[in-house]
Simulated assay, not measured.
Amino acid sequence: MLDLVTTSFYIKSPAFDKAAFEHHSSELFDEWEAQVEAHLLLPDYALTLVLEEGSIKGRAKIGAYAAALYFGIGAYGDFMSGLGTVRDQAVYVSNILFEQAKSEFSCSSERGNTKRTGGEIIYLQRIFERVQAGVLTPDQAIQDVRARWGEEAVSSPGFMHELAANLEAAPRFPEQLSLSDESWPDCPDLESLGKEPGPKLPRPPDPPIPQHYRIEIWRPGRGEKKKLKLTKVR
């Protein structure tokens, strides 16, 4: 299964007892899944959400088999635009998750942060960009994908054939003229001309909490039973 997008987040939150933490976590998973169902138009996917107290640290992943990703891309006609549409859908539901988590765990918008890794959707887009820039040939790009995906590539010959055809047909970027000139003087570092920042004060540690739980909630496939595992970290 391919990792389409992974989102990590951290939010300051009040302490919860075990039952409340499990309840809010399960509610968050269900709310997020409803958004995925509505906006990520793939025939099948897997969802995983891991949350840990102290405050709330979360990690969520959307996975799909290559065949499902191929179907989702093909639903939008052109391969490259379809790939971009699936990417936008994945980004959208990932952003929603962060807002839902803050709401579910009673957090203000100023007290948290999030980051997202692109996964295989971004990887494919970068493969196209490298071919268009002349860094890779289409054959080299396909070999790169086969090596990275392994069995997923073998089990989805239709996807690989379509990918190869679109890599061959992708318009190449025009060659850029170099603007470098060794005779030009280096520009001064503007930051070094300003006042040097003073030492940063260390961030005070979070107060100890009486309990520390970690919960993992996942659904292996669309329509399959939701699973939950709650463990005490310390």
Rank of each mutant, 00 (worst) to 15 (best):
E168T: 04
S81P: 01
E162M: 01
Q100S: 10
E152H: 07
Y123K: 08
W184V: 10
A64S: 03
R172Q: 12
I121V: 14
E110W: 09
F159W: 03
I96N: 12
L167I: 03
R111Q: 14
F128W: 08
I142Y: 06
G198F: 09
S81D: 13
K232W: 12
L83K: 00
P205E: 08
M1P: 02
D181M: 06
Q125I: 11
R222L: 13
K115R: 14
L124P: 00
L167P: 02
F159N: 00
L124I: 01
Q35N: 09
V50R: 13
D44Y: 05
S192T: 07
E53G: 15
S25C: 06
P207N: 10
I215H: 03
F71M: 14
Y45P: 04
G112E: 00
R111E: 15
M80K: 15
I127Q: 04
D139S: 15
P197E: 07
M160T: 01
A67W: 09
A147L: 08
F9L: 03
G54A: 14
K195Y: 06
Q100F: 00
N166Y: 08
L51F: 05
V5N: 11
R214S: 09
P171K: 08
C187N: 13
R87N: 13
G77S: 02
V154P: 07
L228G: 03
V135W: 15
R172D: 07
G150M: 05
L179V: 09
S26W: 01
L40E: 05
E53W: 08
Y76V: 04
L124T: 04
T7L: 13
S94Y: 05
L42F: 07
L177Y: 09
D44G: 07
Y92S: 08
P174A: 09
A75V: 04
S94P: 04
A170L: 05
L167W: 00
G54T: 12
E33S: 12
H161P: 00
K225D: 11
G63D: 12
G63L: 13
F9P: 02
A147Q: 11
A15D: 10
H23K: 15
A46V: 03
K232D: 15
A101W: 03
E120F: 14
S109C: 08
S192G: 06
H24N: 14
I209A: 15
A170Y: 05
A68L: 01
P14W: 03
D181F: 01
P14A: 15
Y10A: 12
F98R: 02
M1A: 09
A38F: 04
R222A: 13
I215C: 00
